[in-house]
Nucleic acid binder design. Sequence first.
DNA 1: CCCGGGCCCGAGAGCGCTCTCTCCCGCCCG
DNA 2: CGGGCGGGAGAGAGCGCTCTCGGGCCCGGG
Lengths: 348, 348
Amino acid sequence: MTETAPRPTLEAVAARAGVSRATVSRVVNGSDGVREPLAERVRRAVEELGYVPNQAARSLVTKRHDAVAVVVAEPETRVFADPYFALQLRGISQELTAHDNQLVLLLTEGREDYARVGRYLAGGHVDGALVFSLHLDDPLPGLIQRAGVPTVFGGRPGWNDGSRDVVYVDSDNRGGAREAVRHLAGLGRTRVAHITGPLDQTSAVDRLDGFRDVMADADPRMVVTGDFTPGGGERAMRELLDRCPDLDAVFAANDLTASGALRVLRERGRRVPDDVAVVGFDDMLPVAEQTDPPLTTVRQGIEEMGRLMARLLLRGLDRPADDPGAPRLRVTRPAGPGARLSPPATRA
Amino acid sequence: MTETAPRPTLEAVAARAGVSRATVSRVVNGSDGVREPLAERVRRAVEELGYVPNQAARSLVTKRHDAVAVVVAEPETRVFADPYFALQLRGISQELTAHDNQLVLLLTEGREDYARVGRYLAGGHVDGALVFSLHLDDPLPGLIQRAGVPTVFGGRPGWNDGSRDVVYVDSDNRGGAREAVRHLAGLGRTRVAHITGPLDQTSAVDRLDGFRDVMADADPRMVVTGDFTPGGGERAMRELLDRCPDLDAVFAANDLTASGALRVLRERGRRVPDDVAVVGFDDMLPVAEQTDPPLTTVRQGIEEMGRLMARLLLRGLDRPADDPGAPRLRVTRPAGPGARLSPPATRA
DNA sequence: CCCGGGCCCGAGAGCGCTCTCTCCCGCCCG
DNA sequence: CGGGCGGGAGAGAGCGCTCTCGGGCCCGGG
């Protein structure tokens, strides 16, 4: 804990350079119209005094904060248990700092925090928000929209009506799931089971839909609800084996789930992939199990999603609000099929 | 992306309530000395207009930002691969929001970002910083101290000289390691090996020191350098088995390492714990392997460390800078021995 | 040589808030 | 009954910056 010395002001720099505040401001903000010798004198003064603009004073007049909130509406510790979000966060951070924006992190511990978040966003402390809230009935998105803050969502928000103007970034969960299941079918598997994610999340629902797209006539007992965790995968796999001992393939809603399923299969003496083929969904990196290169591409993809979110938000911010050329777009980023399919298959 | 309406100002509230700005300010900031009927009128006006104070204007005069930076100086993706940091972050977030402070997250991608971070901190955008930088030769801590921002470090900074006034929060790595190794010795193991963490991190060094405290006369070949990852654990375990096939216990520098070691032991047909006993260091939760209750306490401990960091920082901020009663303290939080030892032992 | 037009630069007015200082009013005590 | 005192409310001066506006200077053209 050191002492913060009184920082030099624009005024001080102006005095030292023998010019007016306005001129210093022009130089500092890179606007042209200052003749070189003068500009140079100002720059030297800035340097000598170690001048750094006071952001508070600046945003007081510009009404810009160069800060973006990242809201994580996930009470569970689970968000942290997998690197998925962390990677997106990293991508977001990269993109934001590339545009000199700060990242204000808002974690919520249950809905009692929502009011606080709403107040903060409505308070105009940030220029925009990136929101992760993947639960179907979550009030947060609505709350945020009402706060009037430009927002980009991570993952498809769980609203049934398509009428809302919403910008979101998501991977192609349904299409990816379809490909995964078709892959299994292509291997000649006929009794394919599915361990879902928690069905109050759109990603889990979409993956289930993708499964059903291909396995329309599947035995309903072949679908068991999981929760995106290894433990859930274990539980579900046990139930599946009890119900349908003759299954020959499993599509797990994510890799963590797949890892749990694999453990149970091994425990029950099933050979993988000879007896049972397993495919996961490579949004997540099974940390403790794999660090192989094959996953790298997907991890990049996740970061890229984060970057994309940030980019979309910043682009929206740069544009005057009533710009008709600002389409309310929905962005869907497909996950690369190759990267998604191969690693679990080979691992299994 | 919705529109942000022009927000009501103090002035507007004052007009509506028929009082002066000063009075509204007093009410809003909860200072006493406003008679109840008036105060009530002001409160109603605030409510009706949906007034939210403009933070920029406020900090312009108070010089407080109610914001704290969290700096993560870890270029590797690895930080995100384990939940250790995420849990601390969560604890920090809880404590900060409890005191109405915002969390500004500064991630660095290598040292080229350090200048940016330094500039930001020196720019007085935040009241303080929580810094995670566990590498021995890292220039960041010095840079930050020079920026004159009150700082609390996560993990013992790697300075050799104890002369610096530094506040940090860390677990008792050395003591914990000692206990772990003693535990193994207590089981009658005599050929105890150690897989270290990356030795440019103080936590790894401290754990190694703890190991040596107990196993002073250990065969130097019984110590192999790891990197806190499962992959590193595998590599190290293979090397250990090749070098000293007769080892009967392994102390792994963390749980991720332990999980890798376990896999190799199983692969090589060693029975655990009959042939080889394994103890990890429970700072981290091996996500994909365990979700058992025993680890819960430790996870709480990690969050608590985060909370402690935030609390120390905020306490320092509340205090006038030259307060003689503000001791430059070092805080060391011991990890609970029971929680640390039992799960790996039982798991193994 | 004089006038018009740029181009630079400085003056000054705020942005929305806090906080001190002053003023006013009511009450208590002599 | 009057003066002093104290507490509650308002006036006003900034905090450090941006940005508009106007004035000065230099140039070219008539």
